[in-house]
């Protein structure tokens, strides 16, 4: 098995090459690095850096934009939260397994955090149990986290229940963390909304939604829940497809509304190719919002 982190890194390298080197790093840094007053050094500006961090005098002297770097006040803890129930073993809108997209997203985020010297922990699980891996630094640790997610989410896993994992976080985590949640199209419910508001009061939360497959598409599906086949020709009937699309719009609006009210920035991805762009957009939105 290829190292999962290796895949993440190569994906990030491609992205960095395509866009601008360090862009994601810049975004991450501007969003999460606490600014201390202890000046550290200057470095070259990369797109995504906070404009107010520019050292204008140094820039004028140097001829190219320079950014002031400060010594970090504290090491941040990034807590990756994801669902490893059997729902994640199903297909995403892009045709991949949702789990693979989740691993990619968690890997990118974890690697960004690692590059910035932050420590990364994991809370994942299903309806039966919640696993918590304490935050540590290091690529090996990150690789272990990704492997754990990759191995846990199978069609034979228990049902998905992200509320349990979020509750676990609310119950056991002390201190202010950065929560990075990767979930599928979760439905908004009042208890979940309460729980998210409760978590948001303590933590910074980023939410990445992995888009679920379109069940009305021309394909033969079976439910990961009970392995029962879906009658595709019924699902594809115009009336049913229209109703499904309407219900999906309502559901998406409900989730967006719930997250917005809780003060959580949400992004969404359909395939692992989109992960980095989606994450970038998510960080960007979060920076603007916060």
């Amino acid at each position: 098995m290829t190292r999962l982190l290796y895949r993440v890194k190569s994906r990030m390298a491609i992205f960095a090459h395509r866009k601008a080197r360090g862009m994601l790093d810049g975004e991450y840094g501007s969003v999460f690095r606490g600014r201390s007053l202890d000046f550290d050094d200057l470095r070259a500006y990369v797109p995504g850096d906070e404009v107010r961090d520019l050292d204008w005098k140094a820039t004028a002297r140097h001829g190219s934009p320079l950014i002031k770097r400060y010594v970090a006040v504290r090491r941040q803890t990034v807590l990756l939260i994801t669902d490893t129930g059997r729902n994640m073993a199903a297909e995403a809108a892009g045709g991949e397994t949702k789990k693979d997209i989740a691993v990619m997203a968690l890997g990118v985020m974890g690697y960004l955090a690692h590059r910035h010297g932050d420590i990364v922990g994991l809370v994942c699980g299903d309806a039966d149990r919640t696993t918590s891996v304490p935050a540590k630094s290091g690529e090996a640790h990150l690789e272990r986290l990704l492997r754990h997610v990759h191995a846990s989410a199978t069609p034979d896993s228990a049902a998905s229940r992200l509320e349990d994992q979020l509750e676990h976080v609310a119950r056991t985590i002390k201190g202010r963390f950065l929560l990075f949640v990767v979930a599928d199209e979760i439905a908004a419910t009042p208890p979940l909304a309460r729980l998210l508001r409760r978590l948001r009061a303590q933590h910074e939360i980023l939410w990445l939604t992995v888009r679920d497959a379109q069940l009305t598409a021309e394909a033969r599906w079976y439910s990961v829940h009970d392995a029962s086949p879906l009658l595709g020709h019924l699902a594809g009937a115009p009336g049913v497809a229209a109703a499904y699309a309407r219900a999906e719009l309502v559901r998406d609006a409900g989730r967006k509304d719930m997250l917005r009210r809780a003060g959580i920035t949400e992004g969404s991805v359909s395939e692992s190719q989109d992960v980095i762009a989606g994450l970038f957009a998510l960080l960007e939105r979060h920076r603007r919002a916060g």
Binding site: R86, N87, M88, A89, A90, E91, T97, K98, P155, S160, D184, E185, D212, A213, L215, T216, A219, R220, W221, Y222, S223, V224, H225, A227, S228, P229, L230, L231, L234, A235, A237, G239, V240, A242, A243, Y244, A247, E248, R251
Partner: peptide
């Protein structure tokens, strides 16, 4: 091997619980 050529999908009940789907079914 019933589902061997089918693709796994989550939240199938979001489709199957639709009244339109129930009527069609």
């Amino acid at each position: 091997r019933n589902n061997a050529r089918r693709r796994p999908a989550a939240h199938v009940e979001r489709l199957t619980q639709l009244p339109e789907y129930q009527a069609a079914l």
